[in-house]
Design a protein around this nucleic acid. Structure first.
Length: 423
RNA sequence: GGAGAGAUGGCAGAGUGGUCGAUUGCGGCGGUCUUGAAAACCGUUGACCUGCAAGGGUCCGGGGGUUCGAAUCCCUCUCUCUCCGCCA
């Protein structure tokens, strides 16, 4: 959520920057400023009445104590009138505030000044590409055939147990999953992240604070009986650890890493997008989250990008880094890099990580702040990234390292799998 | 799931209708003393809205009510603890 004061003071700039995200905001921003004017005015009136009432109540107290009951009763009549006025103003205040909030939550985050303009993924900017990308016409077997050939993943049985998008990992397939999770967690630990294990269900307040509500509620599984949501990413519970907190400046940056299963409804997805491991309803992911000082958050974003690049290098996968254009960016993000690995059998890039700086957009909802050296309180910046999402990594490993003798396991992973090849 | 108790500032813990945003202790911060530290002593120490400021307003788990006035009384929800039941 954008900060009201910033909107008030930079109305034109806000409108212009929203345009980069293809969000036409002139009218709604004007509306917000006007509603806020109204809100302030109403609150001033309400405060004045409250101040008068407080004063009178105090006087009445003194009068009653000194036995001057008739004088006290006279003042009581006055307060009665004030009360009526206050009631009317309160109703007005609440309705203005609600209207204001309803508009405010619909405004996406402002893109960073370096975010390229654009409407669709074609307008994204490739900032780096590494590794050998085998051209389209090869004999590469798609991962969904390899998983069957080597009995790694049973999509059919997963379908029987739950439904499409809930695969059953078996044998070396299951062990490869576990190896990757441990590898990613260990690497993050080495990089200075603190490991946490969050709940997989969150309440509405948490989902709202990180921006999943009210914008993307159709994406989350909802447990109505208990009014809880299954997490679409560990970002939600991990970031919410710090909801309603004021950190000490010396605690920054906070670095957390968490493994979790992730649950996404993915309503409306179809075709090649959901084939095999491309898009699942349940998948595993290791997520890194940082809470940073505003002055260093973009530096930290680069270190996170470099960190994830390092993981992909250790896995020996061809990958590229894409800077998202305004139109392809998420609602809450100010700047996002997507990390994509090459799928030789599908001849396309698969997104395995999305690394974003949310600046104060989440922390404003989270009320996540820090106290500077002078004791002043500011909103912190939040950042996160996948490090990494498993299914497409598995797909890329299988497709890139397939040989006539089986699937080769990259060097760095062998200590974790305990096997060097899948035959 | 049943019975009882409770929810107050970073923590502990007072406060049961009137100047209480809240006694006190610990912790934190600043200072005196010290070569330095500890101890001791002195001072200071919540957040939010509004205002140039002075100031004003709100907040004692959430919501509602009684009252001129609520941390304090009433209703309700949530959560925590203890005991019982069930259980990985």
């Amino acid at each position: 959520m954008l900060q009201l004061n910033f909107i008030r003071e930079h109305e034109q700039e806000v409108v212009d920057r929203l345009a980069v995200k293809n969000f036409e905001g002139r009218e709604i921003i004007r509306n917000i400023v006007e509603l806020d004017d109204k809100r302030r005015e109403t609150q001033k009136q309400l405060d004045d009445i409250q101040a008068q009432s407080n004063l009178l109540a105090r006087e009445i107290g003194f009068l009653i104590k000194s036995g001057k009951n008739s004088e006290a009763n006279l003042l009581k009549e006055k307060t009665g009138k004030l009360k009526e006025q206050a009631k009317g103003l309160e109703v007005a205040f609440e309705s203005v505030k609600k209207a204001l909030d309803d508009l405010l939550v619909r405004i996406p985050n402002l893109p960073h000044s370096t975010v390229p303009r654009g409407k669709s993924p074609e307008d994204n900017v490739v900032v780096l590409q590494e590794g050998s990308v085998v051209p389209v016409a090869t004999t590469a077997v798609p991962h969904w055939d390899l998983t069957t050939r080597y009995d790694l993943i049973d999509f059919i049985t997963g379908n029987k147990i739950t439904g499409a998008g809930f695969p059953l990992y078996k044998g070396k397939g299951a062990r490869l999953q576990r190896a990757l999770i441990n590898f990613f967690l260990d690497e993050a630990l080495r990089a200075g992240y603190q490991e946490v294990q969050p709940p997989y269900l969150v309440n509405a307040a948490s989902a709202f604070a990180t921006g999943q509500l009210p914008d993307k509620d159709a994406q989350m599984y909802y447990v109505g009986l208990d009014d809880l949501y299954l997490i679409p990413t560990a970002e939600v519970p991990v970031t919410n650890i710090y909801r309603d907190t004021i950190l000490k400046i010396q605690d920054l940056p906070v670095m957390n890493v968490a493994y979790s299963a992730c649950f996404r409804r993915e309503a409306g997805s179809y075709g090649k997008d959901v084939r095999g491991l491309n898009r699942l309803h349940q998948f595993d992911k290791v997520e890194i989250v940082q809470i940073a000082h505003p002055d260093s958050s973009y530096e930290i974003l680069e270190t996170m990008r470099e960190y994830v690049s390092g993981l992909l290098r250790k896995l020996e996968l061809p990958f590229r880094i894409v800077k998202l254009c305004g139109g392809d960016m998420g609602f809450t993000s100010a700047l996002t890099y997507d990390m994509e690995v090459w799928s030789p059998a599908q001849a396309r890039w698969l997104e395995v990580s999305s690394i974003s700086n949310f600046e104060t957009f989440q922390s404003n909802r989270l009320k996540l702040r820090f106290k500077d050296e002078t004791g002043k309180i500011h909103l912190a910046h939040t950042l996160n990234g996948s490090a990494l999402a498993l299914p497409r990594i598995v797909a890329a490993l299988l497709e890139n390292f397939q040989t006539p003798e089986g699937i080769r396991i990259p060097e760095a992973l062998i200590p974790y799998t305990g096997f060097e090849v899948i035959k």
